[in-house]
Structures are given as structure tokens and as C-alpha cells.
Computed example of a mutant assay.
Amino acid sequence: MSAMSHEFDLSLATMLPPAGKPDERMKEPAALASQWDAVHEAASAVGILAQLGEEEVTEEVRSLPQRAAKLGGTKLEMIARGIDDLAAVMRPGLRALLSMTASGQDTTSAALTLWREFHIARAAVLALAQQE
């Protein structure tokens, strides 16, 4: 079996906050944007482990934190919770994939599964930001 080797360093992945209750500051556009970016950095690593390469992020995806801030209220809270949930899934998923890589296992199938789940969940979060 030929396992891919990667040099991802999780010590720098402190942008993803600990799992649990969303921080009140997540309602601030800068904090929301920071976590959104961190989730996408993790997804990018998963894409590489799935042998898909890096995804080109569209403007619709990139601008979610700003659109959420403009919406405010319940929509902002639901989007912040959705981003927090994405981070909660990506954190252990990426760690597991990196552990598999470190032990010489092929991560392609597992990474592809996590990548698909990320995209389904991200689509749901993006749908929350649609104007009514």
C-alpha cells in the first residue's frame, strides 16, 4: 500500500477554538471570518489528503462572514453556530487523518468522506445566509 506523506503541522491550528458553546465574540465579523478561514484551511488539508488538491474558494463562500454580519440577529447566531459545528467536525477529522498518515496508512477514502461531509455542511451554512 502506498500512503501519501504530508507535512501538516497542527501546532499552528490554534485558530479553531475548543469545542463547546460558541463564544459571544463569534458574532463579531472579524472573529467569524477568522474561524471561517481556519475551517477552510483544514478543509484544504483534507482535500489534499483525499488527493483532490486545493479547492478554489468562490466569492460567495469567502464573503459569508460579512453577509452574516449584515443579516444580524438569529441568522447571524445560526451561521456562527454552523461555523462552530464545522470546526468541531474538522478538528478531530483532520487529526485522525494525520494520525493515519503518520502510521503509513492510505487516507484517501477517509479524507474523501470527510471532504464530502464538509461540503454538505458548508452548503447548509451558506443557505442560511441567503436573503429572504
Results as ranks from 00 to 15, higher is better:
41 E>W: 11
18 P>V: 03
96 A>N: 14
64 L>F: 08
2 S>P: 14
127 A>N: 04
101 T>K: 12
2 S>H: 13
5 S>I: 06
38 A>D: 02
16 L>F: 00
49 L>W: 04
82 G>W: 08
23 D>V: 05
34 S>L: 14
65 P>G: 03
72 G>T: 01
106 D>H: 03
51 Q>P: 06
7 E>S: 14
103 S>M: 15
93 G>C: 02
63 S>P: 03
55 E>L: 12
22 P>F: 01
130 Q>A: 13
89 V>G: 14
121 A>P: 00
97 L>F: 02
43 A>P: 10
90 M>G: 01
40 H>K: 08
13 A>G: 00
21 K>M: 12
75 K>T: 15
89 V>K: 14
22 P>W: 03
94 L>G: 01
45 A>G: 01
88 A>F: 03
34 S>V: 11
9 D>P: 00
71 L>F: 09
47 G>C: 09
15 M>W: 12
105 Q>I: 07
79 I>Y: 11
114 L>I: 06
116 R>K: 11
83 I>H: 00
68 A>D: 08
59 E>D: 13
87 A>N: 04
4 M>H: 13
118 F>W: 09
104 G>M: 06
123 A>V: 01
16 L>H: 02
41 E>G: 13
62 R>T: 01
73 G>T: 05
118 F>D: 06
18 P>L: 04
114 L>K: 02
119 H>T: 05
86 L>G: 01
13 A>M: 11
38 A>K: 10
87 A>F: 02
119 H>Q: 07
126 L>S: 03
93 G>A: 01
70 K>L: 09
76 L>G: 01
43 A>D: 09
47 G>V: 08
82 G>F: 00
81 R>C: 12
129 A>K: 04
92 P>E: 02
45 A>I: 07
71 L>Q: 01
92 P>G: 00
31 A>D: 14
38 A>P: 03
69 A>M: 08
55 E>A: 14
84 D>L: 11
16 L>A: 00
93 G>M: 00
67 R>L: 10
3 A>N: 12
45 A>E: 10
78 M>T: 13
10 L>D: 04
